[in-house]
Each structure stands twice: as C-alpha cells, then as structure tokens.
Simulated assay, not measured.
Amino acid sequence: MSAPLVLPGQPLKAVASSSPGSGTHSFSGALISSVAGTLKSAPAKSQTRATVSVARAPPAPGQGSAILPEVESIVLARVTRLSTRQAQVEILVIGDKVCREAFQGIVRREDVRATEKDRVVIADSFRVGDVVKGIVISLGDQSSYYISTASNELGVIMATSEAGHQMYPISWREFKDPTTGAVETRKVAKPF
C-alpha cells in the first residue's frame, strides 16, 4: 500500500499524538501539511512522540523538474525595488521557460553598463515595474541571484511611463510615452 497523498493546508493529526517533521507545521492544536506530497510517519523512540513529515511529490509526467537559474542563463525579470546601489528583481523567465515561482535577483550598480560604471544612477536606469532582460553572472547570496545588463542586448525591454502608458525605446538610454510624448531615461536593451 502506497503512502497517502496530502495537499498544503490539509490537517494531518493532533499535535498531542505526534511531532511535526519536515513539510509540516502545527496550527490550532493540529499538524498541517505545508507542501503537496506523501505522508510519512517515523515511529516513536523511547518516550518521544512519532514524527510526521510530508515528502514533496515528484513532478507529474511531462512537467519535468523545476528550473533554476544558472550562471550565464538569460532571464527576464520584473523590477520590484530600487536603492542607490542596486535594483531588486523577480526572475520570471529563464531562457525560454516560464518559472513556476519567481526567484529573487539583484542588478548591482556596477553591473548595469559595461562602460562608465562609476557614473551609473540606478533610478535613471530602471523603475519599479520595468521588465528587464539580463544574464545571471553569479548565484549570489542565499536569497538572490546577481544579474548583469552590461551588454547592448540586455536591459529594459518593457517600460510603463509615469502616466501609466506602455512606452517604446527611442535610443539606447531613453523610452518615449506615445500618448503624452514624455521621455524617460532607462538602460534600454537593443530592440532588434
């Protein structure tokens, strides 16, 4: 008999009768599954309670495994936050595959352009909501990948103006709002 499948949020057992293991958490006196997978129970050792855990389910046939950014992967990412030193992004596409979940990335000031790196101003290169084409240059720290746009083909590919209109590139460093005619600066990716 195979182990039963459980879904995230599904109650498993009362906390008093067992201990939470990986893939579970306790809530209101019950063990709850945190992930989709198969239910596992380890027998009690001496006077301790049995440990209940949930092992993640393998991907369904045809879905393959989750994709992860690798060094030299071309990615599409949305800018989520700006500071004077970097732009934080969510990686949405890796190569030609859409991510099941977004990965965190950082474009540091020195990785925006290949030349005049000391003159880069993050706020003139990106705005929150821009879609950026970049290349992963490092697996970074534990929470974010480092991304570079220091190439003519890399940079902002989609931008929305302050008035809320979709803009189009007019030079390697400017986008134009077709409705208002306003011009805004960006680190523009080569369009063709």
Rank of each mutant, 00 (worst) to 15 (best):
E184C: 02
G9I: 00
Q88Y: 05
P59T: 02
Q88T: 13
K117W: 09
D96Q: 14
S34Y: 02
L82P: 04
G140T: 03
S53V: 05
D118E: 15
L82F: 03
T149W: 01
M167K: 02
L68F: 15
K13E: 12
P43C: 01
T24C: 15
Q166R: 12
E110G: 08
L12Y: 10
V120A: 04
R119Q: 15
A87P: 01
G9Q: 04
E184T: 08
K190M: 08
F126C: 06
D177G: 06
S65L: 05
V112C: 07
L154F: 04
R173V: 01
T185M: 09
S148E: 07
R49Q: 12
A77Y: 08
S144A: 15
E101T: 13
V89A: 05
D141F: 02
W172D: 14
K187E: 05
A57F: 03
E70W: 10
E116N: 15
R119F: 13
S138Y: 11
A150S: 13
I32G: 05
G129M: 02
P69V: 06
A42F: 09
K190H: 13
W172V: 12
G62S: 07
R113Y: 03
T185R: 13
E90A: 14
K176C: 11
S18N: 08
S28P: 00
P58M: 06
V120S: 07
T179A: 13
A150P: 02
R78Q: 15
E101W: 00
V89C: 11
G21T: 08
G95N: 11
V131M: 09
V132K: 03
E72S: 14
K176D: 00
D96C: 01
T38W: 00
G105K: 08
G62K: 05
A182K: 13
Q104M: 09
T51W: 02
E153W: 00
V71R: 13
R113K: 09
A77F: 10
V128A: 03
D124V: 00
Q142M: 10
T180R: 05
V156Q: 02
Y145R: 05
S17N: 12
S2W: 00
I91E: 01
R81S: 14
A182D: 14
K133H: 03
K13R: 15
C99Y: 04
G62D: 06
S2I: 04
S148R: 02
S151F: 07
Q142H: 10
L68I: 06
V183R: 11
T179N: 15
P20F: 01
T179W: 11
H165R: 03
V121A: 08
Y168R: 10
R113N: 07
G134E: 09
Q88E: 15
D111V: 00
P11Q: 07
